[in-house]
């Protein structure tokens, strides 16, 4: 067989593997790590799952900022548990990503070097206790809207991780809303604190649903692989429609002069999002981008001797066992 024929055969094999793969996805069957998959599928999944994992662990930082200052023991314990859940989500997601043939160390390296992205919302500072409520309510709320469809995504390990993540996120969202409710039922100072937090977090939360459809580069392919079921704009509308009545119950005003219920469409119309701000933060120039990455990098670098010690100790123990067996 000459080279041309070999290439032709390989191409045909790949084509038939790809057909099997596409048919599986069309039947809503899961793709598992050992199944054949196109290289682009593998790469896209590593990118998205790791970005998601990074968002979980970077997301621990702005909320972690209030653990030592939480206003009551009950709130302190709940916040610690929430931030711990995020570490747990990071752990499942990194593990899901590792099944695609990439190590956790490589993924961290990508985060620390700025090559990998994470959710931009975590580059905003948490200034008051009300921010902890607003993050739970709005940020976890937007995250759930993004993530629920992923429970039925095509890649098995990701879909299974997301089932667990979503259960915990919806608990966090209720917890955040409850913090806001307590503030809104409190003194004027507490209400003002809640309103100020909503003012600062509302627009970044809308941006979390991603660029508008015409500016989004990955939507079409992601829809095909069930990494996405709705477009960014549809998800954003869903978030707004769901959240505005919740703000009304709290007695808070959503900081958008153009926000108005549209009887014809059955949805809220809303004002222009400041995309320049969005791209500024995505590109690394938000208030806390540098701080967040350096906190992650410090934790990793300062932990190196600890990880080395664990490896050295395990090796010594294994040697001892061998010697004892001999």
């Amino acid at each position: 067989m000459n080279t041309m024929e070999t290439m032709k055969n390989t191409n045909e094999q790949t084509k038939s593997l790809e057909d099997i793969f596409e048919a599986k996805i069309a039947r809503d069957e899961k793709i598992e790590p050992k199944d054949w998959m196109p290289e682009k599928y593998r790469k896209t999944h590593i990118r998205q799952i790791s970005q998601h994992a990074h968002s979980e662990i970077v997301g621990m930082l702005p909320e972690g900022n209030w653990i030592t200052r939480a206003p009551s023991l009950r709130r302190k314990v709940a916040l610690l548990a929430k931030v711990q859940d995020e570490a747990g989500h990071g752990l499942y997601l990194y593990s899901a990503c590792e099944t695609l043939g990439v190590s956790r160390e490589e993924l961290y390296e990508q985060l620390h070097s700025g090559k990998a992205k994470y959710s931009s919302i975590f580059n905003y500072p948490t200034l008051t206790w009300a921010d902890i409520g607003a993050i739970g309510w709005l940020v976890d709320g937007a995250a759930i809207i993004n993530q629920v469809p992923l429970c039925s995504t095509s890649f098995g390990p990701y879909a299974r991780a997301m089932v667990r993540v979503c259960k915990e996120e919806s608990f966090h969202q209720r917890q955040g809303y409850e913090i806001m409710m307590t503030l809104c039922n409190g003194t004027q100072e507490q209400k003002d604190m809640a309103q100020d937090a909503l003012n600062r977090w509302w627009w970044p939360a809308l941006m979390m649903l991603g660029p508008t459809d015409d500016a989004s580069t990955h939507t079409e392919q992601s829809m095909k692989w069930k990494l996405k079921r709705k477009t960014n704009d549809e998800l954003r509308q869903q978030f707004i429609d769901q959240t505005v009545p919740q703000a009304d119950i709290l007695g808070l005003k959503v900081p958008d002069e153009d926000l108005k219920y549209n009887n014809e469409t059955g949805h809220y119309d809303f004002g222009e999002i400041d995309w320049e701000e969005f791209w500024q933060v995505v590109k690394g120039h938000g208030m806390c981008n540098k701080e967040r990455i350096s906190a992650r990098k410090n934790a990793w670098d300062n932990g190196e001797w600890v990880r080395d010690a664990a490896v050295a100790y395990a090796e010594k123990q294994a040697d001892k066992e061998v010697k004892e067996a001999v």
């Binding site: 662990i57 711990q84 990194y94 932990g303």
Partner: peptide, 29 residues
């Protein structure tokens, strides 16, 4: 220990230390 949450040498130790903090604060309550 709560000061360390999010800054541990690995995710696993971070989670474990946070558990200890949670237990201690639960006992305190």
């Amino acid at each position: 220990i709560s000061e360390l949450c999010g800054h541990g040498p690995t995710l696993e130790t971070d989670i474990a230390m946070t558990n200890i903090a949670l237990d201690l604060l639960g006992q305190t309550r």
